[in-house]
Nucleic acid binder design. Structure first.
Lengths: 231, 231
DNA sequence: AACTGTGAACGGGTTCACAGCC
DNA sequence: GGCTGTGAACCCGTTCACAGTT
């Protein structure tokens, strides 16, 4: 069985073909589907069924999974539990990734309480806000800290991933402070492009942009919309 | 000046080259940057400066904008205000798009109060929840309605875009009801793949998936992470 | 017979280089 | 000289067809 990963003489695992970004972005979806199947005591799944549940086509599933290794059985399909383990390992979910949240406003508070994070193994490990009044306030089982204490607090807690839920105007400075505090991955909810060193991973979630994209396609379908603006 | 759009004899605008999806997804970002420039009384911008602010490279900006028409001036750049208008029109933002929100829980409530939507011209026009107890409850200046009233309410209000912020288990049924109520575009925050007719536009915002993608790249950098899980 | 794994063909999107215009 | 507009080259990702395996 040939594998797209192998070991060097020193024993370190070295990936021969890197996993394409597009594939990485789909692995979490496959994982969720597989866990759901496992909950229903389903032990084996074909690329066809997995594709259907993940909203993609079967060849794509096979290609994606082939980047991880030859984990399927021809004529049979994939072992659900084994795949769950392999994908989890690949995504680095076999270890704990505490995340920090900066900006405990409207959206930040919702994110702090979002069940989906804990369900998927992401624990909020620190909350920060720029408002001194709010420092010390309890949210869930965490106390809000002032952003001036961010650097020492994050280093102490060994936090490498952070969410930015500040107003847009504060996001860039927040990002810089996070990077100074050793954070290497940022999920940005503020509607601004962040400029960070190239070694830092940033992903952007822009709620208004999503709606604007939908509006574009909606407009094309030329159905009757709401009233004209300003009337 | 050749244009990628033209008029038929009947006067309807017909696009010769369709705008690539990838470009559509960037137009809202350009628009935001341009509006920001306009606020600072900047009247002209080069592709280089626009690219920098939007986090892309100059040729991409020029290619993207060229799909809309030849709106720049060689040797000078783009007129900020004119571009704002053209992009807004292209995205369909010169009209009002009231949106519905289904699922007024933790996340839903935050979305209902999200300032960014109103700032970008999206007004929440209806709130629905499956919990009968909550029907009638006031959130902001809207009253929560029960989902059983969705169809008549949405049709009456002429709402075509909806946000799903229900638990994952309820999302598919919610989507089906929305489609039955005439909704054509859905922004789904529930962590499930929705199956809808191909004429319906769905965009997915999956918060946990974003974190999992970051975890993947974080793991590669081989820094020391938090403690192992379960210890 | 059923289903995976994958090289090869294909297509959309990005980048490049330069022609075109102010 | 400066900057846009765009065909052409390039690259990544998707799809396809089928060889390989149980």
């Amino acid at each position: 069985m040939r594998r797209p990963s192998d070991r060097t003489r020193s024993g370190a695992r070295v990936r021969v073909k890197p996993i394409p970004e597009a594939t990485v972005a789909r692995l979490p979806v496959y994982l969720r589907v597989l866990q759901h199947l496992a909950d229903q005591q389903i032990t084996t799944v074909s690329s066809e069924r997995l594709a259907e549940a993940a909203g993609v086509n079967p060849p794509k599933v096979r290609k994606d999974l082939s980047y991880l290794g030859s984990y399927g059985t021809r004529g049979v399909g994939y072992d659900v539990e084994y795949l769950v383990y392999q994908i989890s390992r690949e995504l680095g979910l076999t270890q704990d990734w505490p995340v920090a949240l900066v900006g405990v406003g409207n959206l930040g508070q919702a994110l702090a309480g979002y069940k989906g994070f804990t369900q998927r193994g992401f624990r909020i490990g620190a909350l920060f806000d720029a408002d001194r009044e709010r420092a010390g306030e309890q949210v869930g089982n965490l106390r809000i800290e002032h952003i001036d204490d961010m650097e020492s607090s994050l280093k102490e807690k060994g936090i490498a991933i952070a969410l930015i839920a500040t107003p847009a105007a504060a996001a860039q400075e927040t990002a810089e402070r996070l990077v100074a505090a050793g954070v290497r991955s940022i999920l940005n909810f503020a509607p601004t492009v962040l400029t960070v060193p190239s070694s830092i991973h940033v992903r952007q979630v822009d709620l208004s942009v999503e709606l604007q994209i939908l509006a574009f396609y909606e407009q094309r379908t030329a159905g009757r919309p709401g009233r004209r603006r300003g009337t």
